[in-house]
Simulated scan of single mutants.
Amino acid sequence: MPLTPLPLPGADLAFDARWLPADEADALLALLRGTIPWEVHRIRLFGREHPAPRLSCWIGDPQASYRYSGTRFEPRPWPDALQPLRMRLERELGIGFNSVLANLYRGGSDAMGWHSDDERELGETPVIASLSLGATRRFVLKHRTDADRRLALELPHGSLLVMAGQTQRHYRHALPRTARTVGERLNLTFRHVEAVRLRAARRTG
């Protein structure tokens, strides 16, 4: 079943709430939860470093170095379990992905603040394919200058959200904290780092 476009002016969004069947999503979550080498990334806010409120791992091809928030990340090797997903996404979306950021949200107090995936290594119109596993969490987008342009979306287990076109130029997005009791959520955001730009600028999210 093709992805369903989402109506948001100035953005290019598509969504499938059941992109990965439940049994495959269950198995993948259990496998990745125990095999990815999770770590706490440091982020820079207002000139000071803080531990990110989640566990993360930058994964990719050897040349897919990524720099954001003042830190350069060298990619960990691709786990075998992610290769079939990578190939399926490339086939369905017609995009080559050479990297993925894995984030593990351990509960409602783990979150992702407002940001855009607009680093130069990702190109002018990056395609970000975001697969959610585990607990359903609320994902929000807001326009950079027009407060009336917003979208809130529940991302359930096995769902796929694709952000493309001018989305990162026009919008910021976040995964807010919640006071509700929620289980773990594992998120995989597949992307393509442009190695030529990286070598020239040594500069990603």
Rank of each mutant, 00 (worst) to 15 (best):
L20H: 04
P21F: 10
A22G: 02
D23I: 06
D23V: 11
D23F: 03
D23C: 02
E24P: 01
E24N: 08
E24G: 00
E24Y: 03
E24R: 14
A25S: 11
A25I: 10
D26P: 01
L28C: 04
L28G: 02
L28I: 08
L29H: 12
L29I: 02
A30M: 08
L31F: 04
L32M: 13
R33F: 03
R33K: 13
R33A: 15
G34D: 15
G34F: 00
G34P: 04
G34E: 15
T35G: 06
T35D: 13
T35C: 09
I36N: 10
I36Q: 08
I36L: 15
I36D: 09
I36V: 15
I36S: 10
P37D: 15
W38G: 07
E39Y: 05
V40K: 06
H41A: 15
H41S: 12
R42P: 00
R42E: 14
R42Y: 01
R44P: 07
R44A: 11
L45C: 00
F46K: 12
F46I: 00
F46T: 02
F46N: 09
G47P: 13
G47D: 09
G47W: 11
G47L: 09
R48T: 13
E49Q: 11
E49G: 03
E49S: 12
H50N: 02
H50K: 10
H50L: 12
H50Q: 12
H50M: 05
A52D: 02
A52S: 11
P53Y: 01
P53D: 01
R54M: 01
L55S: 06
L55W: 04
W58T: 07
G60R: 06
G60W: 06
G60K: 04
P62V: 05
P62Q: 03
A64Y: 10
A64L: 06
A64N: 03
S65R: 15
S65A: 15
Y66M: 12
Y66D: 10
R67H: 12
Y68N: 05
Y68Q: 03
Y68H: 13
Y68A: 04
S69V: 10
S69R: 07
G70K: 07
T71F: 12
T71S: 11
T71P: 03
T71C: 08
T71H: 13
T71E: 10
R72K: 10
R72N: 07
R72E: 15
R72D: 11
F73Q: 15
F73N: 05
E74T: 14
P75L: 03
P75G: 07
P75Y: 04
R76K: 09
R76E: 11
P77N: 02
P77A: 07
W78S: 04
W78A: 00
W78T: 00
W78L: 01
D80F: 00
D80Y: 00
D80Q: 13
A81S: 11
A81M: 09
L82N: 07
L82S: 04
L82V: 03
L82E: 05
Q83V: 10
Q83P: 00
L85F: 03
L85Y: 05
L85A: 01
R86Q: 11
R86G: 04
M87E: 13
M87V: 05
M87D: 11
R88M: 05
L89T: 08
L89E: 07
